[in-house]
Design a binder for these strands. Structure first.
Length: 566
RNA sequence: AGGGGUGUAGCCAAGUUGGUAAGGCAACGGGUUUUGGUCCCGUCAUUCGUGGGUUCGAGUCCUCCCGCCCCUGCCA
């Protein structure tokens, strides 16, 4: 191995994606001396998983190469945008772990400059005011195979265009009366280049500029200029903008200003959910979910409330990579990242979701012992949780069977199991009610097994979680499953919509019995309920009665084995 | 049909100037275990959408064909 000829990335370092390779090359060749990116959301909705990928890419690249990343709101369509969205976006980016410092920008801050650039284009004979109706413009654009037709207004003089454009700005014309168009090529094979619209008249209140403007610039004109003004070296966007790159370059070239370069990557797609803003808004507005932060939503606010740690989300984004190939990730990949982080960080606790009473007949009544449950089994230094134990306890109903199937290691008549950190117990008798349902299980315990081990080193195959009946507190536990019942919610028969794919069982609520130390957690705190999964305290809880959201369950090998057997 | 992209395992995804297919998730087998969790070990592409061609040698070069995605907003 030659230390001075590093042909590949050092061991352990993540392989570089094509964007990082390109940036490294730009720096090495001297094309750029520093890197400047930007994350440019339109404040017309809440951020979701797809944005997380873009945020991690843009902020990540800037950080890795010692550059900067701007947060820029692409707010050129006042009809759809609002301050609520701006605030939620800032909160979510911060939560994800990124800091844009002083570099918070708004496309609307450039409205004056954008207007001047438009006049400059008009002055150069490269833009004109078109007075056709929207329908006429559409019908004269041509189609995929036929060229478009030039507008009858295309030949207006610079003076006339300037006059008309100034009067558009002054508010002399009604909405839709005129637009400003770039004069490029109505026969271009790239439809984006067929005299794209640059400005439209829109009498709408803008969340930042109020009623100062009645004309607003469009994306293709605004975005490239904003990038240029901010000195963005690498403008990263998703693949569907690839067709727009030609126009992006045209505008900067014809204005002769700093040339930012656009590079496209494949956006994130994931099974079991939808990421289109239109559909997410529909889910919220039609009440299919409780709100933007419903824990079943793929929004960052939903994931946060669900208990997904930002570190896990960043890890996910790093592990899925960046490429130009269309992709559809398995939702399980995200779950794996979440479990990995939570396994290492969530303190352990015990809670019983579906209780069955166990009476330990040879244990003294009114006696209480306190056992120690390690907060982190692999890190003893993290300490323990003190858990009360008494004659009557609750275990999970699933952990008892009157007739144990093969490989069922849990409680059954005559079978001995361990109560986590406490004692070995053996089932002696089953008590049923008049309806024949199991009401309680009578057991005996082995006093020698105190703490969960015996002097004779006798092994038991099952270890159950439990709570002391007289000490347990109640809590509402919300068990979440995927919002949609199938991998691809859009895959529905004719006449149906993605709403038909909604999973009717995406939420079930149970009143659980929890260890008393679980009452009083701060909202957002996540713990592992041993053998069940990770649960996050929800703000909806009150000091006496907490609410927990299941973030993700633990892997369940037994469920798999049982399913295969049955 | 025109233009722009893209096709490596069930899902992501690396693959230098052509030299004989990384890694992760999932799955499957085994070990450890006071969570049927974690952890550890092992298995998992004779083959890179398909057919030709160049070459001693091709995922990498040439070429034919096929599939999929994006583009006809005064949305972004």
């Amino acid at each position: 191995m030659s230390a001075d000829l590093p042909l590949a990335a050092p061991a352990g370092e993540a392989p570089k994606d094509f964007i990082r390779v390109m940036i490294a090359a730009d720096l090495a060749s001297g094309k750029h001396t520093s890197v400047h990116t930007r994350f440019p959301p339109e404040p017309n909705g809440y951020l979701h998983l797809g944005h997380a990928k873009s945020i991690c890419l843009n902020f990540g690249v800037a950080k890795e190469f010692g550059g900067k990343c701007n947060l820029r709101f692409d707010d050129t369509n006042p009809l759809k945008e609002s301050t609520e969205y701006v605030e939620s976006i800032k909160k979510d980016v911060r939560w994800l772990g990124f800091d844009w410092g002083e570099t918070e920008f708004y496309a609307s801050n450039y409205f004056d400059r954008l207007y001047e650039f438009a006049e400059q284009l008009i002055g150069a004979g490269k833009a004109y005011v078109d007075s056709q109706s929207a329908e006429d413009i559409r019908s004269s654009r041509g189609n995929l195979t036929e060229p478009g037709k030039e507008s009858p207004y295309r030949g207006r003089s610079v003076e006339e265009n300037l006059d008309l454009f100034r009067r558009m700005r002054a508010g002399e014309f009604p909405d839709g009366a005129h637009v400003l168009r770039a004069k490029i090529d109505m026969a271009s094979a790239n439809l984006v280049m067929r005299d794209p619209t640059l400005y439209r008249i829109r009498r709408a209140h803008h969340h930042r500029t109020g009623d100062a403007w009645c004309i607003y610039p469009l994306y293709d004109f605004t975005h490239c200029i904003s990038d240029s003004l901010e000195g963005i070296t690498h403008s990263l966007c998703s693949l569907e903008f690839a067709n727009n790159r030609e126009l992006y370059d045209w505008v900067l070239e014809n204005l002769d200003i700093f040339r930012s370069r656009q590079t496209e990557f494949a956006r994130l797609n994931i099974t079991r959910t939808v990421l289109s803003k239109r559909k997410l808004i529909q889910l919220v507005e039609e009440g299919h979910v409780a709100g933007w932060d419903d824990p079943r939503m793929p929004t960052l606010s939903g994931l946060r409330r669900r208990g997904v740690p930002p570190e896990a989300l960043r890890d996910f984004c790093a592990r899925i990579g960046v490429s130009r190939a269309e992709n559809k990730l398995e939702y399980g990949y995200l779950d794996a990242c979440v479990r990995e982080h939570l396994n290492a960080n969530a303190p352990r606790a015990m809670a019983v979701l579906n209780p069955l009473k166990v009476i330990i007949e040879n244990y003294p009544a009114d006696h209480v012992e306190w056992f120690a449950l390690p907060l982190a089994p692999d890190q003893p230094e993290k300490g323990v949780r003190r858990i009360p134990f008494s004659r009557e306890i609750y275990i999970e109903r699933d952990d008892f069977r009157e007739e144990a199937p093969k490989k069922f290691f849990r409680l059954a008549p005559g079978q001995e199991v361990r109560l986590r950190c406490a004692y070995y117990i053996t089932c002696k008798e089953v008590r049923k009610n008049a309806a024949g349902e199991v009401e309680a299980v009578i057991c005996t315990y082995d006093p020698e097994s105190r703490g969960g081990g015996t002097p004779d080193n006798r092994k038991v195959k099952g270890t159950l979680h439990w709570v002391s009946a007289s000490h347990a507190r109640t809590a509402e536990v919300r068990l979440y499953d995927h919002l949609f019942a199938k991998d691809d919610p859009e895959d529905v028969p004719e006449g149906q919509t993605f709403l038909h794919s909604l999973n009717p069982d995406s939420l079930s609520v149970v009143e659980a019995l929890v260890d008393p130390s679980l009452v009083g957690l701060a909202p957002g705190e996540t713990v592992q309920f041993e053998r069940l999964g990770y649960f996050c305290a929800d703000p909806a809880g009150d000091p006496e009665h907490p609410v927990f959201n299941r973030t993700v369950g633990l892997k369940d090998t037994w469920a798999k084995v049982e399913k295969q057997a049955g």
